[in-house]
Simulated scan of single mutants.
Amino acid sequence: MRAQWIKAFTPLSLNIPPKQWLRAASGAFLGVLASVLCSHFFFGSQIAMSLAAPIGASAVLLFVTSATPLAHPWSILAGNLLSAVIGVFCALYLEETGFRAAAAVSLAIISMLALRCLHPPSCAVALVVTLNPNLHALGFAVLIPVVSQTLVLLCVALGFNNLTGTAYPRLATPAPKNIHNTADPLPIARTGFNEEDLDKALNEFGTYVDVRREDLEDLLRLTEQHTFKRRTEHLTAVSIMSRDLRTGHPEMPIEEAWIRLKEHRLKALPVVDQHRRLVGIITLVDLLKYFELDAPISRFHRLRYLRNKRLKHIMTTPVISVNFDTPLVELVSLLTDRGLHYMPVIDEHRQLAGIITQTDLIAALYRGWLSQVQ
């Protein structure tokens, strides 16, 4: 127990790549420099230097951990403004210095939590406004330099982070659209955790988690995918694909493709060129569209209509395909959430080597499940 307690004080992994260190430091340099210089120019050196410390702390969040809720634009703007107001009130109505400082920090924390704008450096704003005579002597006019410095730092963060490849503010990943336009969740999400499960877990965890809820959900789903990939790493496209294929060519008449699909009880026909390179795919649904005529006509005219079309006129191109070593986890996503029913497999020369259907996928998942329970 003592060893575990001591271990709790050891450094934690921040998961920040070294290449991000220089980027964050450069952004913080520009942000603090611009904020202090602007404040010095408009409000004088005393006010600029008095508010420099909270700005420096805010720069760490905005440029190093910009994806956290603590660094959100609303957090820094509302947090600094609210804390400055609290600092002025404490300076006006509380006499004892230590009590005034403690009250300013505690009231700032409660207020920021209530308004969902928690920003730790804002507590420093409340402190310096409360304790610094040059600041609290200004009364509520101190809000002008506080907001000005905050806006300058925020503008630099918005420009620098986005120009250097770090989205700020971080947008929530849009939920994949159900291709059937129904309210059902995507197939891959029906057997995993849902939003209600995540909310219950966060409530039971019982403490603040410094990560956006949307990012946490994405992280957990990625963890699920990597776990599944590790457990099924022996199953790839080459191990589950069908190899004895029936194909068409671009000049093949539609009625010939129809006969081939019907004869072999197939629902999709890959289209290849003379070098067996995949150039398109035609499905039973694609062919059935050409039987849907507005006016009823004779069977003879219907067949004559079909003979005017060839596969190159109606095939789907380009074709979404996979290669031999595509893992099972990617095939699951393509053949469920993307709504695809057939997945051609190509070699390094883009020649058709096989095809994977949803039936092949179900069989592979069943074999994978058996290997885990045995």
Rank of each mutant, 00 (worst) to 15 (best):
residue 3 A to P: 01
residue 4 Q to G: 09
residue 11 P to A: 04
residue 12 L to I: 09
residue 17 P to T: 05
residue 20 Q to Y: 01
residue 23 R to K: 06
residue 24 A to P: 00
residue 28 A to C: 02
residue 30 L to Q: 00
residue 35 S to V: 02
residue 37 L to T: 04
residue 41 F to P: 01
residue 41 F to S: 00
residue 41 F to K: 00
residue 43 F to Q: 02
residue 43 F to C: 03
residue 44 G to V: 07
residue 58 S to G: 07
residue 60 V to M: 11
residue 61 L to V: 04
residue 62 L to E: 01
residue 65 T to Q: 09
residue 66 S to C: 05
residue 74 W to L: 13
residue 76 I to E: 04
residue 78 A to G: 06
residue 80 N to S: 14
residue 81 L to Y: 02
residue 88 V to L: 07
residue 94 L to C: 10
residue 101 A to F: 08
residue 101 A to M: 13
residue 107 L to P: 02
residue 112 M to H: 08
residue 112 M to F: 08
residue 121 P to I: 12
residue 122 S to F: 07
residue 123 C to K: 06
residue 127 L to C: 12
residue 128 V to A: 12
residue 128 V to S: 10
residue 129 V to H: 07
residue 130 T to R: 06
residue 133 P to I: 13
residue 133 P to S: 13
residue 136 H to G: 12
residue 137 A to V: 09
residue 139 G to N: 14
residue 145 P to N: 12
residue 146 V to K: 07
residue 149 Q to S: 14
residue 149 Q to N: 15
residue 153 L to G: 11
residue 154 L to P: 09
residue 154 L to D: 08
residue 156 V to S: 08
residue 162 N to V: 07
residue 165 G to Y: 02
residue 165 G to N: 01
residue 170 R to G: 00
residue 171 L to S: 04
residue 180 H to T: 09
residue 180 H to S: 03
residue 184 D to I: 06
residue 184 D to N: 06
residue 185 P to E: 05
residue 188 I to T: 14
residue 189 A to S: 11
residue 190 R to M: 13
residue 191 T to H: 14
residue 194 N to T: 13
residue 198 L to K: 07
residue 202 L to E: 11
residue 203 N to K: 13
residue 208 Y to H: 12
residue 210 D to K: 10
residue 211 V to R: 08
residue 217 E to Q: 09
residue 220 L to E: 02
residue 221 R to H: 10
residue 222 L to C: 06
residue 228 F to G: 10
residue 232 T to I: 07
residue 233 E to Y: 04
residue 238 V to M: 05
residue 241 M to Q: 11
residue 244 D to C: 03
residue 245 L to P: 05
residue 245 L to K: 04
residue 246 R to T: 11
residue 246 R to G: 00
residue 247 T to K: 08
residue 253 P to T: 09
residue 253 P to N: 05
residue 254 I to F: 05
residue 254 I to V: 15
residue 255 E to I: 08
residue 257 A to Y: 04
residue 260 R to M: 08
residue 261 L to M: 15
residue 264 H to P: 01
residue 267 K to F: 05
residue 268 A to L: 03
residue 273 D to F: 04
residue 275 H to P: 00
residue 276 R to K: 09
residue 289 K to P: 00
residue 298 S to E: 15
residue 299 R to E: 15
residue 299 R to Y: 13
residue 299 R to I: 15
residue 300 F to S: 15
residue 300 F to C: 10
residue 307 R to C: 13
residue 310 R to S: 14
residue 313 H to F: 12
residue 316 T to K: 14
residue 321 S to N: 10
residue 321 S to Y: 08
residue 323 N to K: 13
residue 327 P to Q: 12
residue 329 V to N: 10
residue 332 V to F: 04
residue 336 T to K: 03
residue 342 Y to T: 04
residue 348 E to P: 00
residue 348 E to S: 13
residue 351 Q to E: 06
residue 352 L to Y: 06
residue 353 A to T: 09
residue 353 A to N: 07
residue 362 I to P: 03
residue 364 A to T: 11
residue 364 A to I: 12
residue 366 Y to T: 15
residue 366 Y to K: 14
residue 366 Y to D: 15
residue 368 G to Q: 14
residue 372 Q to P: 10
residue 373 V to K: 15
